[in-house]
Amino acid sequence: MTISGEPTDADPPVDLSVGGVEDRVAERAAVEAEFSAFYRVDFPRLVGFLILVGAGREDAVDAAQETMRTLHRKWGEVRHPKAWVRTTARRVLIRALGSLREEVFGEPPEPAAALLVGDQDMWESVERDEVLAVLRELPPCQRQALALTFDGFSPAEIAQILDVPATQVRGNLARARHTAVIVLGKRKGERQ
């Protein structure tokens, strides 16, 4: 359009017909339904992932909610939403935690029910509280790699999400598993 508001040849034609409006409304409704379905399934898993990488429940919910709001605005642009939300949520969480200046009195234990509510099959044979305690003892890079593995991502996908080489991810996973075995052994010895 020109400054006067007159259309030019470069402007795309605007379809104001009833059918054109109805098509756009139907298309928008389909996009909203697609996003809503993703949100319902992935939001609890995203919160669980953030808890597994070390966030408290409230911080995890806040970061997941902010991430989902951003995803909603960019829904048509994001090609791999499951990976995108984990990458973005980690960054949101890091920014949020980096801006806090609170006195820390110790972290209250997270309730086991908060972990991966939508993915109970994966956790049936493992005590969730024990897994969370073991994960908290791992260095952040190992904890993130293992949490993403629990969330169903391959080492190559984890490398993309964390923006590190796949060999580094595989190394972190091997060290995380080794450390987890040692920590579980110590915990078992303490209980006997």
Rank of each mutant, 00 (worst) to 15 (best):
A147T: 04
V134T: 12
F43K: 03
E66Q: 00
L135S: 04
D11Q: 09
G54D: 06
V181H: 01
S4I: 11
V14S: 10
V164W: 00
I161M: 11
Q142W: 05
I3N: 05
V104D: 10
L71V: 14
H72A: 14
A112M: 00
E22Q: 15
E110M: 12
I161H: 02
R187A: 13
A147N: 06
R128D: 05
E77K: 10
R90E: 07
K74F: 06
G48S: 00
D42I: 02
R73K: 10
V78F: 01
K82F: 07
R170A: 02
V104P: 02
V181N: 00
T88S: 05
L93S: 02
D121K: 03
W123R: 06
D23M: 08
E77M: 10
P12K: 05
A10N: 10
G98W: 15
R86D: 05
E6Q: 15
A29E: 14
T149S: 07
E190V: 03
G152L: 09
S17H: 01
E22C: 11
F43H: 05
R24W: 06
A159F: 14
E77D: 12
N172I: 07
V14N: 04
A96P: 04
C141M: 14
E130L: 09
L93N: 07
D119G: 06
F35Y: 13
G20M: 11
K82V: 11
T70C: 07
F153H: 03
G20V: 10
L132A: 14
A166Y: 01
G152P: 08
G76L: 08
D9W: 12
I3E: 12
E110I: 14
S17D: 06
A26F: 11
A133P: 06
C141V: 15
L173E: 10
L173R: 05
E157I: 04
I94W: 09
V134C: 02
S36V: 02
R40K: 07
E66D: 02
E34W: 02
R143T: 07
A180P: 04
V41L: 12
D11W: 03
P7C: 09
L71K: 02
A55I: 04
T179F: 04
T179R: 14
R45A: 10
P165I: 07
Q142A: 13
R79F: 03
L100D: 07
E66V: 00
F105V: 10
V169M: 06
R24P: 06
M122I: 10
L146I: 09
T167C: 01
Y39F: 13
L146Y: 00
V41A: 14
I94M: 13
H80N: 15
C141A: 15
A63T: 03
A60I: 10
V164R: 11
A63H: 04
M1G: 14
A63M: 07
K188M: 13
M1N: 11
K82H: 08
V104W: 07
D121T: 05
A156M: 03
D9L: 12
T179C: 02
V131R: 04
Q65C: 01
K188W: 13
A176Y: 01
V41I: 11
A180Q: 03
V25A: 09
G54L: 12
R170N: 06
T167E: 09
I158V: 14
A30L: 09
V25I: 12
T67M: 08
E137Q: 15
L97P: 03
V104F: 11
R28K: 04
R187V: 01
E34I: 00
P140T: 11
A30R: 13
D129A: 14
P108S: 15
